[in-house]
Amino acid sequence: MGRLQGKVALITGAARGIGRAQAVRFAQEGADVIALDICGAVDTVRTPPSTPADLDETARLVSEAGGRIVTEIVDVRDTEAVQAATDRGVDDLGGLDIVCATAGITSRESAVDMSEIAWQTMLDVNLTGVFRTCRATAPHLVERGGGSMILISSIAGLRGLVGVAHYTSAKHGVVGLMRALANELAPHNIRVNSVHPTNVDTPMIQNDSVRAAFRPDLDHVSREEFAEAACSMNMLPIPWIDPVDVANACLFLASDEARYITAVTLPVDAGSTQR
C-alpha cells in the first residue's frame, strides 16, 4: 500500500469502466484524483452513455478508499474546458503527478461505408482528445519536476481489427503521440507510455451492437453467447479482462517501480496481439 502516496492523478473517462477502476485503485495506493468525464451521449455512438450519477459513484468509491477527489463534467473535444478543469483540479489538490488519458468511444461500421461524421468523431475523441489532455496537463507535470503520462490505447493500436477502421486508426495514432511525447518530455523527467487492453468487461463492449458483431448469426446475443465467441480473440481461455486488470498495469506505470520505463506499449491482452 502507499505506492502513490502524496501523488495527484488526473483521469479522463473516470465515471465508469477503466477510468473508475484507475481512480479507485490509485486512491487505494494513496493518490488524490481529478476525475473528468463527459457524462453524456456522443453522436454516432450507440454505447449507453455515462451519467453524472456514475461520476458521483466514482467519487464515493475514491473517498471510501481514502483519497480526496474533485470531479468535473468535461468533453475532451472542448479544448478550453479541458484546460480549465485541469487547472482548477490542480489548484484544489495542490499539484499533478500522473495523467491517465482514458476517455474513449467505440462504434462499428465498415471503412468503405463509414460516414464522415463517424470517422471524425472517433478521431476527435480517441486521438485529439488524448492530445488535448496531454497538452493541458504537461505544464503541471513540468512544474512538479516530473511525472507519468499513461495513454489508454487498445489492441487495435497494435494490430488491425475488422469493422472499426476509425477506432484502429485513432488507437494507432495514440501510439505515435505517446512516442513523440516520450521524447519531448523526457528532459523534464516525465515518462509517457501506452496501455493496450483486449476486450474489457465494461459497457463499451457489453451492449447489443458489439455482441451482434461477434455473433451475427443470432438475433439476440446473451452475455454467455458473447463470452463464448469472444474467447477466440485471446490466447488465454478468457473472453475479456476486468477494468482493474488495466488499472493495475497503469498503477505500475504510474509508480516509482516504473521510474525508468518510458515510450513502451504495454499490452494487457491475454495474448491477443500474439495470436
Rank of each mutant, 00 (worst) to 15 (best):
A84I: 02
R159M: 14
W119C: 03
F252A: 03
V174W: 10
D37F: 06
Q206C: 02
D269G: 03
R46H: 15
F26T: 01
A65Y: 04
H196I: 07
V164Q: 09
G163I: 03
V246M: 00
A35R: 05
V268P: 01
R144A: 12
D92M: 14
S209Y: 15
E143P: 08
F226T: 10
M122S: 10
P243V: 04
T58W: 07
G173F: 13
I150T: 09
R46T: 15
V164D: 05
E64L: 10
M1Q: 15
L218K: 06
G104M: 03
L177T: 02
M114V: 00
R211N: 13
V142D: 13
L93M: 03
I18A: 08
R46D: 15
R179E: 12
H166R: 12
T273A: 12
V142G: 11
D91F: 02
G67K: 02
T273I: 10
V244G: 02
T202L: 00
W119Y: 10
V33C: 04
I152P: 09
T79S: 14
V76Y: 00
K7V: 10
P239D: 00
W240C: 06
P187W: 08
F252T: 02
V99M: 11
P239I: 08
M149I: 14
A170Q: 01
G160H: 07
S154E: 08
R108S: 15
V90K: 00
G95V: 04
A270M: 06
R68I: 05
D208L: 05
L61K: 01
L266N: 03
L10Q: 08
H172I: 05
M235I: 14
P239G: 09
P139S: 04
M235C: 15
D201F: 10
T102C: 08
H166F: 13
N199T: 14
K7N: 13
T198N: 07
E143Y: 14
D217Q: 01
V62G: 06
H196Y: 11
I261W: 10
H172G: 03
D97R: 06
S232K: 14
E225A: 15
L4S: 06
S63E: 14
T102W: 03
G129D: 03
S148M: 09
A111N: 01
D54V: 02
Q5C: 15
V192A: 03
S194H: 06
V264G: 07
F226I: 01
I152F: 06
E72M: 14
V90F: 02
K171R: 07
T79V: 15
D56S: 14
S169E: 12
A14N: 05
V264R: 08
L123I: 11
L236A: 11
D242G: 12
V42N: 02
V90W: 01
D56Y: 07
T12F: 07
S148D: 13
